[in-house]
Amino acid sequence: MNQQDVIWWLALLIQLVAIPGTLFPVLPGLALLPLGAGLWTWSVGWAVGLPALALASLILLLGWGADALGMLLGAARLQATRWAYIGAGLGLVVGLLGLLPALPIGGPLVGALVGPLLGAALGELLSASGELGPFGLERLKRSLLVGLAVVAGMLLSRLAQVILAVVGVVGFVLISRLLV
């Protein structure tokens, strides 16, 4: 096995980590695809490696788009306020860091789901603090629906990113083995 083969296997290993990385927020996800393809491109040269690097970069951009679209469409359908989005972002950080005291089990994965749900719901609820009055229960229900919509959008985004990661790895194998 020559040095180029070792680098190819290392690049493939880096790219394979992208698949679980799309599911577990503590791991890097789709960003590993261009990293692995870039390593291989460095080894074989631009003329041979550019198609694999271009595919990996395109998939990374599509993954970012899926992430943004998932977050936006879930809550936008319910016409959530910007505070719901801010709350979801803060909730994601709090959940990933394990700062939700009521979640002793599950760690970052459960926190990545519950944090944005609670953050979006709380953000939406706080955006209408002056409007609670006699319709407070309705506003609370709407806030929880917004939180659920944000989490549903996140889950759909994760599914899309897993599919993109698999396509990226398979594409890398096909392109790199066909060209060399």
Rank of each mutant, 00 (worst) to 15 (best):
I7F: 13
W8H: 13
W8A: 13
L10G: 01
A11V: 09
V17I: 15
P25S: 14
L27M: 14
L32C: 09
L33Y: 02
L39A: 08
W40K: 01
S43V: 03
V44M: 04
A47G: 08
A47W: 06
V48I: 15
V48Q: 11
L53Q: 02
A54M: 13
L58E: 02
L60I: 05
L60H: 03
W64V: 13
A66T: 03
L73T: 09
L78V: 07
Q79S: 12
W83Q: 08
I86L: 15
I86M: 12
I86F: 14
G87Y: 12
A88R: 08
G91W: 08
V93I: 15
V93E: 00
V93Y: 06
L97A: 12
P101D: 02
P104G: 07
I105W: 14
G107W: 08
P108Y: 04
L109W: 10
V110T: 13
A112M: 14
V114R: 02
P116G: 07
A120Y: 03
L122W: 11
L125A: 11
L125M: 12
L125T: 01
L125S: 01
L125W: 15
E131L: 14
L132M: 14
G133D: 12
G133S: 12
G136S: 06
L137A: 09
R139M: 04
K141D: 10
K141Y: 05
S143L: 03
V146F: 08
V146M: 05
A149W: 12
V151R: 02
G153S: 10
M154F: 14
L155C: 04
L156H: 03
A160V: 13
Q161E: 08
V162N: 00
I163D: 00
I163V: 15
V166P: 03
V167L: 15
F172T: 05
F172M: 07
F172A: 07
